[in-house]
Design a protein around this nucleic acid. Sequence first.
DNA 1: CAGGATCCTTTACGATACTG
DNA 2: CAGTATCGTAAAGGATCCTG
Lengths: 129, 129
Amino acid sequence: MHTNNSHDPGTICKAKIHAIKDTMGILSGKWKFHIIGTLLLHGTLRFMDLLREIDGIGAKMLSKELQDMEVNSLIKRTVKNTKPITVEYEITEYGKTLSPIIEELAKWGTSYRESLHKKQIHIAKKFPL
Amino acid sequence: MHTNNSHDPGTICKAKIHAIKDTMGILSGKWKFHIIGTLLLHGTLRFMDLLREIDGIGAKMLSKELQDMEVNSLIKRTVKNTKPITVEYEITEYGKTLSPIIEELAKWGTSYRESLHKKQIHIAKKFPL
DNA sequence: CAGGATCCTTTACGATACTG
DNA sequence: CAGTATCGTAAAGGATCCTG
């Protein structure tokens, strides 16, 4: 009965947890979900547009995060032959498969904020907004 | 037409991005999704169980992450009057509302790993597993 | 415009040791 | 058992200047 243990509950658990780790490994850092979300909503954007659009990020971090995500084929970087050069970033088809995650994150964040209002909780460190 | 701009596309975009930021603010750090996933799958667990179950985490980080999540009402901490004392952690009803996110993360991670196998990509820094 | 290089500060994280 | 205290490292983040 347990010669093949690939379907026992323990194994399924471990696999699921491992899958979460995989995802978070690729989307680690403070900004990746934010960047993906912005590109999903706006389509193609240039470096400076992203810098303006993503509140709080600096050029150094943006550059690094974009490189990480390009390496993992989540976004595409295109250099245009203008003067001076412009660079466009867009999400790939593969990157778009992240949108269910993004949608759930946005949904949860929205209802979280609503629940704070209902409970009339005042903003504090305890509830970071 | 734009006296009330709460429904124009720009505002909707900003709200969505902000919601993602809210969620990630609460679930920041390397371990929170991992802990939530583990508690969702196992139910109630003690401190030491979590320490064993969550591969790689140390006592300090686990303690800190659990406190963060308790403050935000995602988990419940119960001290049992045993000798020596034992402490049980479980997810709250509110914390369970995170499960759609966890499910999507697990789904994506699973298909990510499958896509690597299909493409016969060998594991490298480029594709962290 | 799109970034890389450099320097500096702060936060995140981890290992070890210790306490009720 | 369930943590806290202490220490040290690594990564995040910001500011400024520089280049093609």
